[in-house]
């Protein structure tokens, strides 16, 4: 049996608002959908030791992260009544105010989509091997750790 091809969910740099808009537009032909639920992660201007974060540089164990995303996807489909779902995460530098995570879930009804997005985002934060170097305004950096 042919091995299942794992989708690459990474995008180099920030996730553009045009990409998000086009993704929504592509679902207009899927007329069984009654609800879309989106989560957008944005890089925040945190203050660390009196210094502002100016960007986060994301790296990842890409093969493993894509496998984890696929497992999260399969679990989400088994738990919730979904029509489709997509995960996109940035690699490389993302400046404050830019989008680094885009989770897009579609369902016939809103509640399944709402619950699924919450589940998916928590699972991504917990299980995906993604690392973030927070670059500070004085050219120093710290490593971000999910709480």
């Amino acid at each position: 049996m042919e091995a299942k091809k794992i989708k690459n969910c990474f995008i180099e740099g920030p996730i553009a608002s045009t990409f998000i808009g086009e993704s929504i537009g592509k679902h207009q032909s899927k007329t069984t959908i009654g609800a879309h639920q989106l989560f957008l992660g944005q890089v925040r201007k945190d203050i660390i030791d009196s210094k502002s974060v100016i960007s986060i540089e994301y790296t990842s164990h890409v093969d493993m992260a894509n496998k984890v995303f696929e497992e999260i996807r399969e679990e989400a489909f088994s738990k919730f009544d979904l029509t489709c779902m997509h995960i996109y995460h940035s690699l490389g530098e993302v400046k404050i105010g830019e989008i680094c995570l885009f989770v897009f879930v579609s369902s016939a009804h809103r509640k399944a989509a709402q619950k699924a997005v919450e589940f998916i985002v928590e699972e991504i934060k917990l299980k995906s091997p993604i690392f973030g170097k927070e670059n500070l305004e004085d050219e120093s950096h710290v490593w971000k750790v999910n709480q």
């Binding site: 992660g41 986060i56 994301y58 990842s60 164990h61 493993m64 992260a65 995460h89 680094c100 995570l101 985002v121 991504i124 934060k125 917990l126 299980k127 995906s128 091997p129 993604i130 690392f131 973030g132 490593w143 971000k144 750790v145 999910n146």
Partner: peptide, 10 residues
């Protein structure tokens, strides 16, 4: 074998 520090995705 991958040695992975704490995760920071999302």
């Amino acid at each position: 074998i991958a040695i992975l520090p704490p995760f920071a995705g999302g």
